[in-house]
Amino acid sequence: MTKFLLKKSVEMLFTLFGITLLSFFIIHLAPGKPTDILTDMNPKVTPEMRERLEKYYGLDKPIVVQYGMWLKRIVRFDFGDSFSTDRRPVWDKIKERIPITLGINVLSMILIFVVAIPIGIYSAVRRYSVFDKVTTVFVFTGFAAPSFWLALLLMILFGVKLHVLPISGITSLDYDALSVWGKIWDVSRHLVLPVFVSAIGGIAGISRYMRSGMLEVIRQDYITTARAKGLPERTVTYRHALRNALLPIITILGLSVPGLIGGSVIFEQIFSIPGMGLLFYMSVMMRDYPVVMGILTIGAILTLAGNMLADISYALVDPRVRKA
């Protein structure tokens, strides 16, 4: 197991290096410079001032040197300072937003798990039943519906028409004055729609995979053997079939992390949630390179951590992987 983890960690570091290298070059080689945004609007800026500004940001050096400098700082976990007017350290800016984005994603992962797996099992066990047919329709619709559109519809329904849920931000204006329970209640009410919207695609996907996984497993010989031994159908389904059908789901959950993180840009923008996605959107618009690189790196680390968790849990439940 230790050897397995070590090998995975080395692979992960290598991938992380590749991701940062690729992102850095793509971002810095794209036409236009961050200094343009600061200077274009101002007719008083002379070319010399512009050069001085570029030098100040280190943008005048060859890109390989710039990447080297970035890398040297990053190993000490120093993401540099933001280009924006507040000049705050990038890590401080990201740090305060990680819990929000991560929290919503974890909640929606839990929701996906709790809802999708029972649906998948049940529609596999009762294949071609009314329940199976209804969920199949739901799954295909959930796959095809753009999440930001669902968000809009739910905002119209619950926020504009029924006035039962808030539609923007994660706290109300009077948040500071509320009691502890009032605060929890307030945040929960704000999170209902974002969590639901970000989970819906995953629920559709995972329940589908769960269904086909179960159908695949139920056909295997050892299930026939279990039934032939006279075990009750419940035991066969939940003891023998379920365990093996769950395996691929772990991998898929791990692989869905980048999608969830990437999707956070859209729904944080819709619901005005001050998370990493919204910060990324604003930084990209201002060409705030250090923040953009910082978020891409953190996003990649979270993705790799998700994959790693998936690999570990896979190894824990499947001895074949562990021993290999």
């Binding site: 991938t15 991701i19 992102s23 036409p31 236009g32 999707g263 990324f280 990209v284 060409r287 790799l304």
Partner: peptide
């Protein structure tokens, strides 16, 4: 596959 692709797409489109 490990890069949150939508982030990357967003960055590139915003820049170009």
């Amino acid at each position: 596959l490990s890069i949150p692709t939508f982030f990357l797409i967003l960055a590139v489109i915003a820049f170009v």
